[in-house]
Amino acid sequence: MEQVTMKVEGMSCMHCVNSIEGALKQQNIEGHVDLKAGTVSVKYDEAKFNLEEIKEIIEEQGYNVV
C-alpha cells in the first residue's frame, strides 16, 4: 500500500469532504480530507492505481490538486 498527502485547492466545507472521500471510496481508495490544512491523504494499492489516476478522481469532483 502506498500513502501520499496532496495539497488540494477549493475545499471549504463538509460537502467538499464528502464529495472527495466518497469518490475515492467508490474506487476502494482510503482517503481523508483535512480542510484546515487543505490536504487530502490517500492510501491506495499502487498495483491498481497510480497517482495521476487519483488526482483525476479528485479533480473530477471540481477541486484542483496542486
Rank of each mutant, 00 (worst) to 15 (best):
18 N>V: 00
6 M>F: 15
49 F>A: 00
16 C>T: 00
62 G>V: 07
64 N>T: 15
33 V>Y: 14
3 Q>A: 13
58 I>R: 03
50 N>E: 08
52 E>I: 07
64 N>R: 11
63 Y>A: 00
47 A>W: 03
16 C>W: 02
29 I>K: 09
30 E>M: 11
8 V>I: 15
34 D>W: 11
12 S>M: 05
29 I>E: 08
31 G>H: 09
38 G>D: 12
66 V>P: 00
28 N>G: 09
46 E>K: 14
41 S>W: 01
27 Q>C: 08
6 M>G: 06
25 K>F: 09
13 C>L: 02
19 S>R: 15
56 E>T: 14
27 Q>V: 00
47 A>Q: 15
16 C>D: 04
47 A>Y: 07
34 D>T: 07
65 V>W: 09
36 K>P: 00
8 V>N: 02
19 S>W: 04
18 N>L: 11
46 E>P: 07
5 T>E: 15
25 K>L: 14
63 Y>D: 01
26 Q>S: 14
9 E>A: 06
19 S>L: 10
57 I>T: 08
30 E>A: 12
37 A>V: 04
44 Y>V: 07
29 I>M: 12
44 Y>A: 02
49 F>I: 04
35 L>Y: 14
29 I>N: 07
45 D>F: 08
55 K>Y: 04
52 E>H: 10
14 M>K: 15
65 V>S: 03
13 C>F: 01
41 S>F: 03
44 Y>N: 01
51 L>W: 05
24 L>F: 06
32 H>P: 04
25 K>V: 05
58 I>G: 01
58 I>F: 01
55 K>H: 07
17 V>A: 08
48 K>M: 13
11 M>T: 01
61 Q>R: 10
12 S>H: 15
22 G>Q: 07
8 V>A: 02
7 K>Q: 12
62 G>D: 04
50 N>M: 03
28 N>T: 11
